[in-house]
Simulated scan of single mutants.
Amino acid sequence: MANDPQVNVQVGRLLRANTRACVAGCLPSQNFPPFGSLVSIDLGQEISAYGLVSDIHIDDDGLVRQLVTTPNISETVIQDNRVNRNVPVELSVLFVGHRSAGVISHRLPPRPPLSLDRVRACGEGDVCAFTSAGSLGYLRFILEAQDLPAADLLAAHLLQAGRAQRDHGDEQWFARAIDKVITQLRDDYVRLMPVLEALADVQRELGI
């Protein structure tokens, strides 16, 4: 992981949190992680929380409301609004596990992070380490999440993780993940079908 250029890249700071999820803020000019990406937050005492970006929210304000009604806005004004004004992008993060004293667990973190804690994007090495630990039990957090587009979140995450695992030599990881999803939803056909449809698109993107 030491050679992974994406490890420990700060993408924002914590705004609010509970035991299951948190919201972080970052500036639009920052290269924030896409929907479904794995991120980590250092909780101190050798504990880190892991979560998936489950929503990206860009708020408006009075100036933006005025600008959108202005014809022919110059590119300079648009870039000034995006780069120089401190209107944060909010990243919602669904917790899916934690690391304690170097050991990864697919259980909720022992406590939520605190305000202004750093949120970091996980590079491929961290993604592989987290998704290879245990027996993919963390997928239940996605499938059981309320008020989230579970099928799309799962597909986005498995695309990132499937690529990372394939690049690190494990070409069977994605198939094991699908088997785990089918096992967890085998008694809920209504939920299983849209999930499998979304994962079929991921398979095509991965060339599997």
Rank of each mutant, 00 (worst) to 15 (best):
L67P: 03
E124L: 09
A198R: 15
R166L: 05
P33M: 00
F95N: 04
R13T: 00
A49V: 04
R65G: 10
L192Q: 00
C122V: 08
D201I: 15
V127A: 15
A129V: 09
A175K: 09
Q172A: 11
R118E: 12
R107F: 13
G25L: 12
Y189M: 12
S115Y: 13
R111I: 09
V68C: 08
M1P: 03
H157K: 07
E171Q: 09
S74D: 07
V96N: 00
R118S: 14
D61C: 10
L206C: 06
S100F: 12
R120T: 11
P194V: 01
L27G: 13
A200S: 14
P109M: 02
D147R: 12
P149S: 01
R16P: 05
Y189G: 13
A49S: 08
D59Y: 08
N72C: 06
P88G: 00
R118G: 10
G134D: 07
L15V: 15
L158H: 01
E90K: 14
G125A: 09
F35V: 05
S74H: 01
F35C: 02
V202Y: 03
R107M: 13
V202E: 04
R107D: 15
R20H: 08
A175W: 00
P113K: 14
L139W: 02
S54Y: 11
T131H: 07
D179K: 12
S135V: 09
Q30Y: 03
L91M: 08
E75P: 12
D152M: 09
Y50Q: 00
N3C: 11
D167F: 09
H98S: 04
R13L: 01
D167T: 07
R176N: 11
S37E: 01
H57S: 08
L154G: 01
I73W: 04
D167G: 01
M193G: 10
L148Y: 09
V23I: 04
R16S: 07
M1Y: 12
F95W: 03
R191F: 00
L91T: 02
P149F: 06
F141L: 03
S132I: 03
P109E: 02
T69C: 15
G137T: 10
L38V: 07
V9F: 10
V202S: 02
A121C: 14
N84E: 07
L63F: 02
I56T: 04
E124Y: 12
E46P: 04
G207L: 08
V7T: 04
G125L: 12
V103K: 07
A155M: 03
L136C: 03
N3F: 09
D187E: 04
V127Q: 13
R163D: 05
A175P: 02
G162M: 05
I78N: 07
R82L: 15
D4S: 04
Q45K: 11
Y189K: 12
A24L: 05
Q203H: 08
D152A: 01
R82Y: 07
A21C: 03
I78C: 08
V68N: 05
V89R: 00
A198Y: 06
L38W: 10
F95Q: 06
L52H: 07
N86C: 12
F32A: 14
L139D: 05
L159R: 11
S135D: 13
R13K: 08
I41G: 01
E144R: 14
V64D: 11
